[in-house]
Design a binder for these strands. Structure first.
Lengths: 208, 208
DNA sequence: AATTCCAGAGAACAGTTGTTAACTGGATGA
DNA sequence: TCATCCAGTTAACAACTGTTCTCTGGAATT
């Protein structure tokens, strides 16, 4: 079923990706609501009007960035929660996975953290929707665990949201520590690990 | 020692407050990094150049807003954590206090949530510093609790940060539910309450 | 009463912004 | 081969931006 794109479509997608890349770079030092259309086209090296061939507005571009940043993350989230091993191993592995992701895609993480409560409504809504999906998926994985026996659906979703939010808090901490010395990164790892451990303890005594 | 301000100083402070109020209102629909100096002066009803009599830049104004939004919050945080009563009562009271604060100062809460990871470095730093102070204060209160016996300083601070972050997550949820029907606000209250309860359970079994 | 001070006004500056319209030239499909 | 399509270009628009310098009039100081 894989149909090779025509030269034309291929070039268009390439330009579109250049817009996304340039915007993401520019957004490291500002918010989406101050990102100018001309600013982006200048960075890409095309005429301002070329922008409209791909996006209606910078808000539209922002929504596309949300998909790029979070869309491909779903498989990882599933495996993060569902990995086997005892509780302590799973925590260590989850934190490490987050740290690696921040190292690999710092600009994406910064964008999501920044625009989650940012000044552009459609983008906020897109992030909210994706995070709700994450929570649903985490909930599904949690439900498979024998520890979830006796838990109501509501409580499972409550815990899933807690995990998702904690994941973002941790990612944001790693982001701030990106340029910091290894010592500081280790401090963050320890903090995040113990916070997750505490939540995990609360989880195992929830039904007491 | 209270010295009545001269007419001149009084008028200046009044104008300064008008700047803060106008900026806060404008920031409900955008981020600080896109807030224009002329935009603010127009809203206040003064000449653009008057801005410089009070602030070096919009970033400077942002830092002043952080102080206004968080500076007066310290006493409340202390009482939130230190209130007497059993665990369940304290949780209910804390959530209610957050809900009331969001109702009373929605724009302040929105500003902090938005600019905590926003595009203006000095403002991010100011918020980070204030939240670190909050965490220290929460830690001090936690240490007074008999339940904290045997806890290391590091673990207490870890828990304090967890509480502070959870407080912000909850505040942000109430903010999104501000215009929503009472039913939705009740749902948020239930969610936040159970999350805090789970953390509280983890806390009480931490030393097991 | 005379002098200094200073919050705010006014005008002007070079640059920037988003959006429109009409175009070009190479890929596409008949 | 020839007509159609369409990603990207060019030019122009009114409106807006931050910042400078100069000025003013009433409060503050002497």
């Amino acid at each position: 079923m894989s149909h090779t794109l025509g030269i034309r479509q291929a070039q268009k997608q390439k330009t579109r990706q250049a817009f996304l890349d340039a915007a993401l770079a520019l957004l490291e030092e500002q918010s989406l609501s101050s990102l100018g259309l001309r600013e982006v086209t200048r960075a890409v090296g095309v005429a301002p009007t070329a922008f409209y061939r791909h996006f209606r507005s910078t808000a539209d571009l922002g929504v596309a960035l949300v998909d790029e940043a979070l869309g491909s993350l779903h498989p990882m989230v599933r495996t993060t929660v569902s990995t086997t091993g005892d509780s302590e191993e799973r925590i260590t592995r989850a934190i490490e996975l987050i740290a690696r992701h921040v190292d690999a895609y710092p600009a994406h993480v910064r964008f999501i953290a920044r625009e989650r409560h940012g000044g552009v409504q459609p983008v906020r809504e897109a992030i909210r929707a994706q995070l709700a999906r994450f929570a649903e998926e985490v909930k599904t994985e949690l439900a498979k665990d024998p520890e979830a026996a006796g838990w109501s659906d509501d409580d499972l979703l409550m815990l899933a949201h807690l995990y998702v939010d904690q994941m973002l808090v941790t990612a944001s901490l790693f982001l701030e520590a990106l340029e910091a010395p290894e010592e500081e990164r280790e401090r963050v790892t320890q903090l995040a690990t113990r916070q997750l451990r505490l939540i995990s303890i609360g989880r195992s005594h929830w039904l007491d």
